[in-house]
Write a protein that binds this DNA or RNA. Structure first.
Lengths: 337, 337
DNA sequence: TATAATAATGTTACCGATAACCTCAAAATA
DNA sequence: TATTTTGAGGTTATCGGTAACATTATTATA
C-alpha cells in the first residue's frame, strides 16, 4: 500500500506537507502543491481513512439500522437516508435487524466497535431500550425512526399512526362496514400501540363497539406460519367484512392466507393497511392504504442526525417530527349496501 | 472514550494483557483474566475497531454495491449477501449506484479510502471497467454480480440471461404470439446483451423474423419519462401482441404506460419479464416472469468473496457461477387463438 | 538597518490497538 | 543440584495519518 510517506519521499517533502495538500490546509506554494499532486497521481495514492479516523476521532460513517430490508417502506426510507447522508459528506453503513432484539444487539456491538459518528435506528421494539441506553452511554448520537421507545428521550421521526389508523377505519365505515377486524404488529412496538388506539378511536367515533377478540397481535415482519392467524379468523362470529392490517407486510400475509383459502378480495372481504407496497402498487393499484412518506422518514431523520452530530456541544432540545399518513384509496374495499 | 490503557491501569496490568484477554491469545492466568474482564465490564470498555484495523491491516468490513435499492431483486440479493457475510464474521457496508457510472465512481473512492477487505459489486455496465481496474490495482478482492464487464477477469455470479430470455419468448410463442417486441436495458450492460441474444434465438427457433425495430433499448433503472417509449410503441406496425421486458423495473414502467393509456394487460397486450417483483407478487400473481434466484446471487457471491479474501496467497482460478432463471407462469399473457 | 511579521515547510507526539521480542519466576528435566 | 522449559506477563515499535509546535527564509515595518 502506498502511504503518505511514500509520496513525501518521492516528492522530497515531509509527510505533513503531503497531508496539507490533501486536506487543503495550511500554506503551500503552488510549485510544491503541483509536485505533490503529480506524485500522488503517479503512485496512485489513496488516503487511508482508518488512520485518519483514529487520529481525528471520527469516522465519517453513519449507520442505518432497519427492521426489514425486504419491506419497501424501509428501502424507500433507506434511499432517503442515503441521499441526505451523501449530501452531508457521510458514508452509510447499514444493517437489518429482522424485527429481532437479538440481531439488533449484534448490530449495536458493531456500531460501538466501528465508532460510527451516528446512528439512525428503527428500533425492534420497547425491549430495544438497553441498546439505546448503551448508545447514549457511549455518546453515540442517534435518531429514532418510526417507533418510540419508552424510557429514552431523543430526536425522532414518527408517522401519525393513530390518525392514520383512525382514518382507515372511518373509510371502511363510510363504505358501509361495521364489523372490522384488526391484525396488528407486536404491542411492544409503539407504532402498533398507536395504531390500535387509532382503530379503537375510529370504532368509537363511529359508534361501533370495540371488541378485543377482533384484534390479532403478531409481528410486523413476515410470518413463518399462517395457521394461528387462520384460527383466529375462524373463531370470529360474526365474521368481519373488513380487515385493517397494521402494516403492508401483514396485509400481504393476510392476502396470502385468503388466497390459500380461495377467499376473494374485495368481493368476499375488504382489506386496508398501513404503508404502501412500492412501485408495483402504482401499476396494479389494488390495496387501499394509509401511505407514509417513507423517503421523508429517512431524509429528515438523517438531517436531524447530522445536525445533532455537528452541534454536539450546544444542548439542542430533542426534536420530534410527526409525518402524516395519506389515505390512498384503491380497490381492496367493497362498498356495502 | 475508555481505552485499553484505562482498563490496564485499573486492573494493574499492561495493555498487552488486556489485549490478550480480549482476543483470547497468549497465556493468561484465570485470576488475571477474571480481573480484566470485571474491569472491562465496570468501565464499559468497547474495543476500538479503527485502531485494530490500522495495525491489523484489515477492517473486517465488506462492501456491497448494487444498482437499484428499490428493486426487489437487489434487496433480496442484499439479504443473501448479508446473511453470508455475517456467517463469516464480516460486517457489510453498502451503496447504491442508481445505474450511474458517476455515482459508482464515488463509491469506488469510498471503498478505497475505507480499506474494506472486499467488494461485491453489480457493475453499472461496461464503462465500469476503470473502476474494477482501480480495485484490482489496489488489490481489493472483488466479485461481480449479475453482469460481466469485458476486459476484466474475476469471480462472478451470473444469471442465465440468454436461456431465460429465450424461454420467455418460447412461452409467448406457445401461447400463439408471433409479434413480440422487446424492451431492454442499455446495451452497455452484459445481461442486456445476452437477453437480446436470447430473444433473437427464441424468435429464430420459432421461425419468426427478427426485426430490430421491435427492440427498444433504455436503462434498467426507473424511467423518468415514458414518452420516448410510447413513441417507439406507436410507430410499430403491426403493433405487437406481446412485450418482453428486460427486467422487472421495465415491466412496471411498461405497465405504467399502458395504464396511462387505458390499455389492459393481458386483454389488449401480453407482458413477460426478467426478475420477480418481491413478496407482493405471491399474493397478486400477475406478471409472468423468468425469476432469478436473487438470494442465491448474494449468498453465493459473498461466499466466493470471503473465500477469495482468505486464500489471498494461493492463486485460485477465477470462478464463474451461472444460476438458472425459472419461468413462473401467471396471468399477464393471453392465449391467442 | 534592525526587527517583526509572514509564508512555507519540517519535527515530534499521539490516536488505540497488536506483533514481536523480552523478562522473570516456577516447574520439569537431566 | 544445575539446566532447560514453560507459564505469565511486560516493553517497544508500528500501523498511517494529523495537531501542535518548531524552524527557516523572505518580506514588511519601525
Amino acid at each position: 500500500m502506498v502511504t503518505i510517506y511514500d509520496v513525501a519521499a518521492k516528492a522530497s517533502v515531509s509527510a505533513m506537507t503531503v497531508s496539507r495538500v490533501i486536506n487543503n490546509t495550511g500554506k503551500i506554494s503552488d510549485k510544491t502543491r503541483a509536485k505533490v499532486k503529480r506524485v500522488m497521481e503517479e503512485l496512485g495514492y489513496v488516503p487511508n481513512q482508518t488512520a485518519r479516523s483514529l487520529v481525528l476521532q471520527q469516522t465519517k460513517l453513519l449507520f442505518l439500522l432497519i427492521t426489514d430490508i425486504m419491506n419497501p417502506f424501509y428501502t424507500t426510507l433507506a434511499r432517503g437516508a442515503e441521499d441526505a447522508a451523501k449530501r452531508s459528506g457521510y458514508r452509510l453503513l447499514f444493517g437489518n435487524s429482522d424485527e429481532s432484539i437479538e440481531k439488533e444487539s449484534d448490530y449495536v456491538t458493531t456500531i460501538l466497535t466501528t465508532r460510527v459518528d451516528g446512528v439512525l435506528v428503527a428500533p425492534a421494539g420497547d425491549p430495544s431500550l438497553p441498546h439505546l441506553e448503551s448508545l447514549r452511554k457511549h455518546k453515540v448520537p442517534f435518531v429514532l425512526l418510526d417507533r418510540e421507545v419508552p424510557g429514552i428521550e431523543c430526536d425522532i421521526v414518527l408517522g401519525d399512526s393513530k390518525d392514520g389508523a383512525r382514518r382507515l377505519v372511518e373509510h371502511l365505515v363510510a363504505k358501509g362496514h361495521r364489523n372490522i377486524a384488526f391484525v396488528n404488529g407486536s404491542p411492544s412496538v409503539s407504532s402498533a400501540r398507536l395504531r390500535l388506539q387509532g382503530y379503537q378511536d375510529g370504532m368509537k367515533l363511529s359508534d361501533l363497539a370495540y371488541n378485543e377478540r377482533y384484534v390479532f397481535e403478531t409481528s410486523f415482519g413476515p410470518l413463518s406460519d399462517l395457521t394461528e392467524m387462520g384460527q383466529w379468523l375462524d373463531q370470529l362470529d360474526p365474521a368481519p367484512t373488513a380487515i385493517v392490517a397494521g402494516n403492508n407486510v401483514l396485509a400481504v400475509e393476510i392476502l396470502r392466507l385468503f388466497r390459500e383459502r380461495g377467499i376473494s378480495v374485495p368481493e368476499d372481504i375488504s382489506i386496508v393497511c398501513f404503508d404502501d407496497l412500492g412501485p408495483y402498487s402504482e401499476v396494479e393499484p389494488f390495496l387501499t392504504v394509509a401511505a407514509q412518506q417513507a423517503y421523508q422518514f429517512g431524509y429528515m431523520g438523517m438531517q436531524m442526525l447530522v445536525e445533532r452530530i455537528q452541534e454536539r456541544e450546544t444542548a439542542l432540545p430533542w426534536k420530534k417530527i410527526v409525518l402524516p399518513a395519506d389515505l390512498v384509496i384503491r380497490r381492496s374495499v367493497k362498498t356495502l349496501s
